[in-house]
Design a protein around this nucleic acid. Structure first.
Length: 809
RNA sequence: GCCGGUGUGGUGGAAUGGUAGACACAGGAGACUUAAAAUCUCCCGGUAGCAAUACCGUACCGGUUCGAGUCCGGUCACCGGCACCA
């Protein structure tokens, strides 16, 4: 009988649709729970990309195995459907984004079902569903009420094409991450979320999590904690100028100061600055540059000295000049620095350009050539008064102590992380549920009025002044203040796409609850997510944002753990033929539909797992898919040849137990490629040795998570479905007997002086004498040892013997 | 520049410090077939050799070790992330 994958897959998908074997049971305490999560897709118009099935299939395999191991598994799916591509498509084609979204979700759903994933479809969520975003809005209101959401005017990244404010994270190399257009700076009033208040906890709590190391490192780098000191400099203007430095030991070398052009003192000191015109011109020029232009490293340092005002170095007592320059960022530290040109390369370059004094305070470099930036403890302090002779390592605390005693500074920790720009001037997002009243200020929409539904508009285009399309809907905008009843206006900005995805994993636990975001019982049962797999591209954005929201929900008692995800793994990208990123323009995009049509979903699943190391990027090859199909055919064809014996055959017992062990361990490590290789090797043995139905039973169980459709059909055809009254996927996961994974004999390598001379087969656990005796039987060994004496023998049990020989004297 | 990662046959890739190249793809030979496809069996890193065999071989240079793809030091190349963060 031929393996008719199309008919088989159709049959079993219909069966699962009806019998719901993947339904998670909230509150079942008879079994341990397991919550496996994949990043829910953005339902784009292009449909599923070949990149999607990689993480989905891997987690599907993990959760299928967990079910067979007796876990109550939650493996949900949903759609992260707000966002720009849909909105842009809607604008272009004059279709409402909700209709586009509905169509795309239907398409994605069909494709995901086609691949046979064991999702609990009854729990599917859609971030654009008012019943869902009601709770996104609710969380925002709680943040607002706790003072973690605030509105501020700030220079923002402005995409000239999308006409939209972008988060720092959405700007890549100075252009918009989505559309590639130029990003410039623009002053705008924005809603912000105080993620910085959680910076330290976001670092500290990583310690107890089972995240792959590179994710932890990348998150820590992104948060960018650095320890240093704030130092107060007196100025002739009367105001103290405070700076942040990690190198307070170099204070004696601070020969000038620099403020960011946006520093508040620039304006404040206007009357005392004698070259105001020059200063104002520089400030104005800086304001118009995009962040990208400002941060181009290759460019020369620019700046202007603020004449008429000087600062006083607190340790030397010397008056030093103050400059403004755009190499100092207003958003980090205090927006001003003390410049130590001898020991900071940027300061050195600036000092060379502006003729500032360069004073060496740490011995060891050649400050004529470049700054000596050593941070270790070898450097010795010079020209530094009471610090002279100390190492850098000693000088830092000594300086801090001195500053504290003098009241001129204190230890300080700074983070690179900035607050999260939370508003978007777009239509297709969650409305921000706030109302502005002239009397009461910003007032939350009462919670019983949530969801604040996104109104229908005529046009989705942002207005020319960059306001949201909602701002044109005066009927909607004009409302009454929930507080005083007076006239008021609604906030017209919407939330960024990151909002809905920051908490979706909680909604899966209790998706139809219309009273709460998630019930206490459901959250306590399912939380936290046991294993979350996703792309490295979400490490610093989505992952950090959702950890922040979860910590906040923990603080207000909505969830019972401080962290949302216990374990995080990450998959590599799938590259097109030729090793290039898949893209429409390159024409190397692979559509999973085509592969499924030609080879079937089980082959697609198997192949995408077999293709290479899950964590690394791999190149897709249409040619190689055949190998995976061939393997499934070989498994299928075993049904014709298997001896009608329900027992595991003696010939195959050892390989079966070894394979169970290997596949069990490999799935837990996401080493699907070697798990499949082991299954292939076992099937090759079955062909060589012949096999029984008992052997085949074990193969079917092991293969079930990888190729669920084919296995259920085989399970039925071989009579096991009738025998056990269960599908293969509902059977217990096979177990192995350690003793049976061990062979009676070992093939050992024989080396002479470390060179391989051959192999010998000896009984398992043979002692040295036995192995050496067997080794000496080999011609090549005898030849190599001729006229030699064995001075040392190294024996690695069951693996290798190495004879160290020397010429006999 | 900083942080992470990677470098192995024609190709994708395997190898707790212990037989490098498992498992596949492509290629070659054979069986079956009128034929092709499919299937089954065997071969398949390089050089020399009829062969047995010998030597070389995991980016490059060096080290540790009885033994290194694996550990250590240095170099080069590529990929990802961050980037004037004081």
């Amino acid at each position: 009988m031929k393996y008719d994958f199309a008919a088989i897959e159709k049959k079993w998908q219909a069966n699962w649709e009806k019998t719901k074997p993947y339904a998670a049971v909230t509150g079942d305490t008879s079994r341990p729970k397991f919550y496996g999560l994949i990043e829910f897709p953005y339902p784009s118009g292009q449909g599923l990309h070949v990149g999607h099935p990689r993480p989905f299939t891997a987690m599907d395999i993990v959760t299928r195995k967990k079910r067979m191991e007796g876990y109550n598994v939650l493996f949900p799916i949903g759609f992260d459907a707000f966002g720009l591509p849909t909105e842009n498509y809607a604008i272009k084609n004059h279709i409402h984004p909700a209709i586009v979204t509905k169509k795309n979700i239907e398409n994605f759903t069909a494709q995901l079902k086609m691949l046979g994933y064991g999702f609990d479809w009854d729990r599917a969520v859609d971030t654009t569903d008012p019943n869902y975003y009601k709770w996104t809005q609710w969380i925002f209101l709680q943040l607002f009420k706790k003072g973690l959401a605030y509105k501020t005017t700030m220079p923002v990244n402005w995409c000239t094409s999308c006409k939209c404010v972008l988060a720092n994270e959405e700007v890549v190399n100075g252009v918009c991450e989505r559309c590639g257009s130029e990003v410039v700076r623009k002053e705008k009033s924005q809603w912000m979320l105080k993620i910085t208040q959680y910076a330290q906890r976001l670092i500290d709590d990583l310690d107890d999590l089972d995240y792959i190391e590179r994710v932890k490192i990348q998150q820590k780098n992104w948060i960018g904690r650095s320890t240093g000191a704030e130092v107060v400099f007196k100025t002739t203007a009367g105001d103290d100028l405070t700076v942040f430095t990690t190198r307070c030991d170099t204070l004696f070398g601070a020969t000038y100061m620099v403020m960011a052009p946006e520093h508040a003192y620039v304006k404040k000191w206007q009357d005392q600055i004698t070259n105001w015109d020059e200063v104002a011109a520089y400030v104005d020029a800086a304001a118009h540059k995009s962040d990208f232009e400002r941060s181009e490293l290759s460019k020369e340092k620019t700046g202007v000295e603020i004449k008429g005002i000087r600062a006083i170095n607190p340790v030397t007592g010397k008056e030093i000049p103050i400059f403004i320059s755009d190499y100092v960022l207003v958003t980090y530290g205090t927006g001003a620095i003390m410049a130590v040109p001898a020991h900071d390369q940027r300061d050195w370059e600036f000092a060379k350009a502006f003729g500032c004094e360069i004073v060496e305070v740490v011995k060891g470099g050649d400050i004529e050539k470049e700054a000596f930036t050593l941070k270790g403890d070898e450097g010795v302090m010079v020209n530094s008064g009471f610090l002279n002779g100390m190492t850098v390592k000693e000088a830092i605390p000594a300086t801090k102590k001195w500053l504290a005693e003098q009241g001129l500074g204190r230890e300080k920790v700074n983070y690179k992380l900035r607050d999260w720009v939370f508003s978007r001037q777009r239509y297709w997002g969650e409305p921000i549920p706030l109302v502005h009243c002239d009397k009461c200020g910003w007032v939350p929409v009462p919670e019983d009025q949530l969801p604040l539904v996104l109104p229908q508009v005529e046009s989705y285009e942002p207005t020319d002044d960059g306001e949201s399309p909602l701002s044109k809907m005066t009927d909607w905008v004009n409302t009454t203040c929930p507080c005083c009843g007076g006239s008021a206006k609604r906030e017209t900005d919407t939330m960024p796409q990151w909002a809905g995805s920051s908490w979706y994993f909680l909604r899966y636990m209790d998706p139809h609850n219309d009273k709460e975001l998630v019930s206490k019982a459901a959250e306590e049962y399912w939380g936290p997510v046991d294993w979350y797999n996703g792309g490295m591209e979400h490490t610093t954005l989505h992952l950090l944002y959702s950890r922040f929201w979860h910590k906040f929900l923990y603080d207000i008692g909505v969830v019972h753990t401080p962290e949302p995800y216990q374990k995080r793994t990450s998959h590599g990208m799938i590259l097109g033929e030729g090793g290039e990123k898949m893209s429409k323009s390159r024409g190397n995009v692979v559509n999973p539909n085509d592969i499924v049509a030609q080879y079937g979903a089980d082959t697609m699943r198997l192949h995408i797992m077999f293709i290479g190391d899950f964590e690394k990027a791999v190149t897709w090859s249409n040619e190689a898919v055949k190998g995976s199909k061939r393997f499934l055919d070989r498994c299928w064809n075993l049904m014709d040849n298997a001896a009608d014996d329900p027992a595991i055959s003696a010939k195959n017992e050892s390989i079966i137990h070894k394979t169970i062990k290997k596949v069990t361990a490999d799935i837990d490590d996401l080493k699907m490629n070697t798990a499949i290789a082991a299954l292939m090797a076992m099937v090759n043995e079955f062909y060589a040795n012949g096999c029984t139905k008992g052997d085949l039973e074990q193969l079917m169980l092991l293969l079930s998570p990888f190729a669920p459709h084919m296995v259920e059909e085989m399970w039925e055809l071989t009579g096991y479905a009738a025998k056990y009254g269960k599908m293969a996927m509902q059977m217990p996961w096979p177990t192995y007997d350690e003793a049976k994974t061990v062979d009676a004999h070992a093939e050992m390598a024989v080396q002479v002086n470390g060179k391989l001379k051959g192999t010998v087969v000896v009984p398992m656990d043979s002692d040295q004498d036995t192995v050496v005796a067997a080794a000496m039987e080999l011609d090549k060994v005898r030849k190599a040892a001729e006229g030699m004496q064995v001075v040392k023998t190294i024996l690695v049990k069951n693996k290798l013997v190495n004879l160290i020989v020397k010429p006999t004297k």
